[in-house]
Design a protein around this nucleic acid. Structure first.
Lengths: 223, 223
DNA sequence: TCATTACCTTGACTTAAGTCAAAAATGGGT
DNA sequence: ACCCATTTTTGACTTAAGTCAAGGTAATGA
């Protein structure tokens, strides 16, 4: 069991802070464990604070009445979520659910806003974090509207290959059902897209391991 | 011709600041006029500052190679754009173009970051502005993926009716071509959707004036 | 180990929405 | 008031991707 202060000091949004500033943050942090499948908050809930993931994996998603869902983000250790509600003062605009057993730190809204007011580094880190998230959305909206399912899958695979940097193969860290919902499609279509791309010798699929056989071809698909 | 300081004092992201802080901001602001159709920045350009709209109207959009476009935001007086690149230090993730003759204030990156470091109110205003933008994206991604074209149009009309608050009619402030691109579709589909909704006595269309005849019906369409 | 559940794939069918083409309407600017 | 350019509409056609249904596979826990 790691010390909370140690964890906090390794979180990007708290980087570059002084020892006493980290201790201030530690004072307001609330430790919390959640099981796989547990809902952390739902769209419309009052946003009385935000979270940082210590361990595990969380999905942020929108759902329709008929049960369809669109994943907005898949987040892992070190990443914050729920900040938007903290700074807008409005309810959470989406749902958060653990897709693996996870450990979280919760930061209550008013205490955190007080902290940030007297801490320029923390402000700038937070501005950077929100801006990165906005940039991700920019890509997601563009992709959803301008690319077809194969194009979105190709983009995702190339992005992951780059991020994982383990040569030309990618290990999916989520189920294909979740991936379908992240890419704005359904598992049937995703499965057929994997098959088609395999036939065309663009990739090779073995469970959750995807080998990128023809990267230039994938880049062309992704436009 | 209004004084720049007057303009700045009325911009939401600069609200609640002291007189001398507003003067600091005024010192780094660069005044600029752009014509309708003029590109202000393109995706990939270096993000060396951000803009606030004094007058006019700006669209932020993604484009594909084949010429399709998806509008991310339509912005008007008082609204900032291009901040993401300021805080990520990365290039602009989308394009900005004037869709009307406009007047802008430009704030250079390094000067602005210096200002924000010593100004807690400005930080919090900026955090709030970015968070609102994130919330808008949340809605846009959900709608694009979970609603069909009539559902997205119904949502838009209801949103605008609420925003304009002028009873049950809406005046479009953009062309139907732009609206199609904002809703993630094409003008042909939008036109057919308007026709269908008129047949069903949900709305009445007269140029850019839309009367909402059956709001509950529209809400049902929008889910 | 077995059983139960969740996940993934495949096939046949349907449909929303895009494409292409052309006509009609609108609206500045001179 | 007229002309040119943009915007909007309409029609016929195509297609990507969703739905429904069923079978297969993998994974988890008692």
């Amino acid at each position: 069991m790691k010390k909370i202060l140690d964890i906090i000091s390794r979180v990007p949004i708290f980087s570059g802070l002084l020892e006493n500033q980290l201790q201030e943050i530690r004072k307001i942090a609330v430790d919390r464990y959640v099981d796989k499948g547990e809902i952390i908050f739902s769209e419309g809930d009052e946003g009385n604070g935000f979270f940082v993931i210590t361990d595990g994996r969380i999905k942020i998603f929108k759902a329709s009445i008929e049960g369809k869902e669109q994943i907005l983000h898949i987040l892992g250790p070190g990443e914050p979520f729920g900040q938007v509600a903290v700074f807008t003062g409005k309810p959470f605009p989406a749902n958060a659910q653990a897709i693996a057993k996870s450990r979280l730190l919760f930061f209550p809204r008013t205490e955190f806003v007080d902290l940030i007011s007297g801490n320029a580094s923390l402000s700038l880190n937070m501005l950077a974090a929100l801006s990165m998230r906005l940039q991700d959305f920019t890509v997601q909206v563009g992709d959803l509207s301008l690319k077809d399912a194969p194009g979105r899958l190709a983009s995702y695979l190339l992005f992951m290959a780059d991020e994982q940097g383990k040569g030309d193969y990618v290990t999916l860290n989520i189920s294909k059902l979740q991936l379908a919902h992240l890419l704005g499609t359904i598992p049937e279509t995703l499965s057929r897209t994997f098959s088609k791309m395999t036939e065309q010798d663009l990739i090779k699929v073995d469970g959750r391991t995807i080998t990128l056989v023809n990267c230039p071809g994938l880049e062309r698909l992704a436009e």
